[in-house]
Write a protein that binds this DNA or RNA. Structure first.
Lengths: 135, 135
DNA sequence: GTCCGTGCAAAAGCTTTGCAGCCTT
DNA sequence: AAGGCTGCAAAGCTTTTGCACGGAC
């Protein structure tokens, strides 16, 4: 018999609705602190804990993702379509890239290892055009 | 005229030599704290700060790498050959995978974006065989 | 009425850093 | 002798959490 995990119930919150809207409206892969600053304009008493708690809920719901890009702080995005990231080593900027997706490599790799592969991420590192121009 | 960055001078240290040896001898992609525990067996007065400082130097020298795998703490490795990671979503274990490398995708992607790509990382997420057996 | 979400503040956890003394060069 | 490296401890930062209150349902 299977143990059924209790379904978590989410209530509506204006803060979370607006947080998601802000995250969806930017392409900058912002930090929690940046989101806090934006959202605080609408909710002057907003607390940073609320931002973190709501980001966590949005991730549970599959509406937001955390990006691990080597910074000391986390960055988030709300884009759900499959895509990769171009990460600039000079300025840390993250740019979405979705012109080519490799769904086939999960299978290709999966056939050769004893590991159930569900997904993959690819990040490209280099220098963005802005930083190239500057130097 | 080009500004030449002053070359950093490194001195020998027994702690760093042994740290690298320990990192090279494991396949577990350890945390700084794990390395500290191992190294402290040889240097009873060792401080965690020394581990971090030396990891940082080893990374500058290209002898160690930090792996961003979504944990709250960093993990490190000393393997220099190109390889990818299989990351278990259940237990967090990281396994090296080097049977297939895709050097060509840097060029393939690079041709279509205004971004100088130097390298890429690929991480596969899923369930390791240990965790699959358990469930 | 329940009990989830919020604000506030404190705590937690990993990593960094200032300092004095030691060791490498 | 110069200055990087170390241990120790304190500080720094991001993220998490306890609590009482307000809001969603």
């Amino acid at each position: 018999m299977q143990l059924k995990k209790k379904e978590k119930i989410y209530r509506y919150s204006r803060q979370r609705e607006r947080l998601l809207a802000i995250l969806r409206a930017t392409e900058s892969h912002p930090t929690a602190s940046w989101l806090y600053d934006r959202l605080k304009e609408e909710f002057p008493n907003l607390s940073l804990g609320t931002v973190y708690r709501n980001l966590s809920i949005l991730m549970e719901q599959g509406l937001a993702k955390k990006i691990d890009a080597g910074s000391t702080f986390d960055r988030f995005e709300a884009k759900t379509s499959p895509h990769y990231h171009l990460i600039c080593k000079k300025c840390g900027k993250i740019i979405d890239f979705e012109k080519r997706f490799f769904p086939e490599i999960n299978d290709e790799i999966g056939r050769s290892v004893d590991f159930d592969i569900e997904s993959h991420r690819i990040d490209f590192f280099g220098t963005c055009s802005d930083c190239r121009t500057k130097s």
